Amino acid sequence: MSGSDSPPQTLGEMLERLEHIDRPDGRVSLEDVMETLGRRAFGPLLLLAGIVTVVPVIGGIPGVPTLMAGLVLLVAVQLLLQRRAIWLPRWLLTRSVALTSLHKASRWLAPVARPLDALLRRRWQALVGDHAVTAMAICCIGVALMMPPMELVPFSANGAGLALSGFGLALMSEDGVAALFAFTVSVATLVAIVAGLG
């Protein structure tokens, strides 16, 4: 397993890096993932949190959406503060899942990676510029704060996962269309949660 100073730029590249993680104990920690994706991987970490929340083999485990909420909150706050590198506490870095689950999720997503990556490109730069990134970070914080209650509302976590995935892809590819999709899904999900808990 080798780290990289440059974070992945596409979903396909991210999945390829994750697929190459190998641990003798059969467990992969968040620290292993950070070493693989890079300490500046704001977009990839948001994308990973979104994927974990959506993919049934991991996101369906009770407590996982709440754990991902903690990760998203920490990443989004540091994105808001314009930090160059991501810091995460030791208790979160040592959290782990079975390596087989990570590889199964990677293979589950592999068929959609290539066509999705082909759709993404640099465009609508106003939606991925500095002010937009600030808005993305604030929106991600809002989504993260709502994720624990989402465990009580069926399928609502899927909306959060899609929104986080969209923000992650927008940051990675600098695609304003992906950002617009993520903003739209975020608002729709938050409205659905408020209505579901009301």
Rank of each mutant, 00 (worst) to 15 (best):
4 S>Y: 06
7 P>E: 03
8 P>W: 01
8 P>Y: 03
11 L>C: 09
14 M>R: 01
15 L>W: 07
18 L>V: 05
24 P>G: 10
24 P>Y: 08
24 P>M: 06
31 E>G: 07
32 D>T: 02
34 M>H: 04
42 F>D: 05
44 P>W: 02
44 P>M: 01
45 L>G: 06
47 L>K: 15
48 L>K: 01
50 G>C: 06
54 V>A: 09
56 P>Q: 03
58 I>V: 15
60 G>H: 00
63 G>I: 01
64 V>L: 04
65 P>G: 06
66 T>V: 03
73 L>F: 12
74 L>W: 01
76 A>H: 01
78 Q>C: 03
79 L>C: 04
82 Q>L: 09
86 I>N: 08
91 W>N: 06
92 L>R: 03
92 L>K: 08
93 L>G: 08
95 R>K: 13
96 S>R: 12
97 V>A: 07
104 K>C: 06
112 V>A: 14
112 V>I: 15
113 A>P: 01
114 R>Q: 15
115 P>W: 00
116 L>H: 05
117 D>Y: 05
119 L>S: 12
120 L>S: 05
125 Q>K: 11
126 A>P: 04
130 D>L: 13
131 H>W: 10
133 V>Q: 09
134 T>M: 04
134 T>A: 12
136 M>C: 03
137 A>Q: 04
138 I>V: 14
139 C>Q: 13
140 C>D: 08
142 G>H: 08
144 A>W: 03
147 M>S: 10
148 P>W: 13
154 P>N: 00
155 F>T: 07
157 A>C: 11
160 A>P: 09
162 L>T: 02
165 S>Y: 07
169 L>H: 14
176 G>Y: 01
177 V>Y: 13
178 A>C: 08
179 A>R: 08
185 V>C: 04
187 V>F: 12
187 V>T: 14
194 V>T: 15
195 A>Q: 11
197 L>T: 13
